[in-house]
Each structure stands twice: as C-alpha cells, then as structure tokens.
Design a protein around this nucleic acid. Structure first.
Lengths: 154, 154
DNA sequence: ACCATAATGTTGTGAGACATAACAATCAAG
DNA sequence: CTTGATTGTTATGTCTCACAACATTATGGT
C-alpha cells in the first residue's frame, strides 16, 4: 500500500534524502560517530579513552562504589570491567579496597593522580564539546541534553 | 575560566551527578546504546542489522550510487564495505553493475526483494522509534532531529 | 602520447568493544 | 546448614572498525 511515486526516471542530480535520514536513531549514530572521532585524538595525549574517563568520573562522584555498581552505572558488564579497572589501578589512577560490609566486593577510589588526570581530561573534553557544539546556542545545548536524557533513560 | 562550583562537601546521599553526566557526548553514547539494544532484536526476524538497513535505504534513495559514494554517505570505509555488500548481493537484495562511465567503479541497485525487505524493515523501525521516543512530543522529536543534524554534520 | 599521481575495489590483518559461560568466594534466606 | 543468588575473575568467541598493500583504471601535466 505504499504511496511511493515511481522515480526511476528522475535525475539524481542533487541529494535525495534517504529513508534513514529522518530517523532519530540514525542521526544519533552519526552524531555519536562524529563526536567519538573527534574525542579520541583529544584524549590520546593523556593515554585515556572515553570509557576510562567515564569510569574516573563516576568513581569521583561516588567514592567507594563497588565494581558491580560502576558497571551498572556505565552499562558495562562486570566481566568486561575487570581489565579496564586493572588498567586504571596499574597506572595508580584508582585503588581497589576491601569492602568492610561485603567481603566479596571491592570498593573503588581515585588517587591523587587520578584526580589530577581527570581534571586535565575534563578541560580537554570541555574544549572538544565546545568545538562539536559550535553551531548550537546555549539554549539549544541544554535542550539537546534534556532530550537526549529522555531517550537515554529507561 | 570554568565557572565550576565547588561541590566537594555535598552529601553523596542520593545519586551525585558525575562529571560526564553533563556532557552531550556521554548522553549521546547512552542514548545510542539504548536505542541499538532495542533495535537489534527488532531486525533479527529479517536477518538484518542497522548498517544493512542504512545501506539499502541510501541505495534506494540514490540508485546507481557507487560503492565509494555509499561508504562516504554512511561513514564506512570502502574496505569495510566490501563484505557488507557481498552479504547483500549474496541475498539478492542488491546488485552490482558496471559503471559505464568509470570502469573501476561498480554501481549499486536494489532488487525487488531488496525493496520489499526494506519496506518491512521501515515498518518495524517505525514502531521501534515510536517506542524509544514515547516520552517526547512531536515538536520535541523534530527539535531533536534538528539538533542532532547540527551535531552530526561536518 | 607518455608518465606520474590519484581513485576504486579488493584482500588481509590486527586492535578494540562486547556478550557469554564457567568458576571460587561470599552473602542471604529458608 | 543448605540452597540459591551475588561479586569478582578468567577464558573464549564474535563483531566492528582502522590500516596497509595491491591490481586496475582515471586524471592531469608535459
């Protein structure tokens, strides 16, 4: 029942909009892809990746959070979290400490170096966001944050 | 100079907002992740993935597009495009034809089966988007599309 | 016409993200 | 105390993606 006109003879001169172009999911994919492409080289000088920054950020906001909680917060499965945490502990950016309440769990804390490096990363990421959102006014950026929040939340 | 208030003394009773939570890039990542998690099982019955749908969609909107053009349009490198196109041609969803103007290039066209399958996918994806954007009004959805477009565009 | 450079499709390869299963240690509930 | 669930861990496999190299063909300069 498609009301689709026959355009087999139409000259594809300009750039006909594809079906996926009107989808939020598709533009989300493109916007995300473009931002990651810009962010990766930004963090390279600090030897960090976006995931590691997110981990540091959540640990700073929730000192003493256990690994399972960190994984849930970031949408990372605990199995895949282990090598990431090993990477951060190996660089003395965070510490694993025994949880006094639960002997299975390990709590996570930022070290001084972790704090400092996260501050550096935050500054670089601030510039990065400013660059990516240059076309958007402050009101538009807030609106985008709000709308993305509604989509991201469960 | 960042106008960042000192919140070190705030009581972390509820759920303290982490630094990354105010970043567009981070919410973009979360929103994208959630939508993909919902979309993948939607396309499973058709044995399709989001990339394949995007390819079919762009080919339908630009019949005769060459592989290089498709890769540029979707942000996929031509090397990685080859097995994807092989997958679609193997399933008789698209066809590779010689380009009369450039003997290096191969033009791409949808088959009837490709058209039909894309229509099915479009219907399923329509439901999927409706589900993901349930919290947003029509005006908000259009605004989100517009803002994402500004971020995604180069 | 000739030559150097670029573009297109292709293959191969490796790194990284991610899901799953299985296990030991510990907790929680009956 | 015993059964089941939870936490951290290891191992494994899959999927996506980037990069390098190559043959074929176009393009542009001389």
């Amino acid at each position: 029942m498609a009301a689709k006109p026959n355009l087999a003879v139409a000259a594809p001169a300009e750039r006909p909009a594809s079906l996926v172009d009107g989808l939020v999911g598709y533009r989300l994919r493109r916007a995300h892809s473009r931002m990651m492409a810009d962010l990766l080289p930004v963090l390279t000088p600090l030897a960090l990746r976006p995931v590691l920054v997110a981990m540091l950020s959540v640990i700073r906001a929730n000192p003493g959070i256990i690994q399972m909680g960190l994984g849930t917060e970031l949408g990372i499965q605990r199995a895949n979290l282990v090598p990431l945490i090993n990477e951060l502990t190996g660089r003395k950016l965070i510490e694993r400490r025994a949880d006094p309440r639960d002997r299975r769990a390990l709590t996570l804390h930022l070290t001084r170096e972790g704090e400092a490096l996260l501050d550096e990363a935050a500054a670089l990421i601030g510039d990065h966001e400013e660059r990516m959102l240059a076309k958007l006014s402050t009101a538009e950026r807030n609106k985008l944050l709000e709308l993305l929040g509604k989509v991201a939340v469960d």
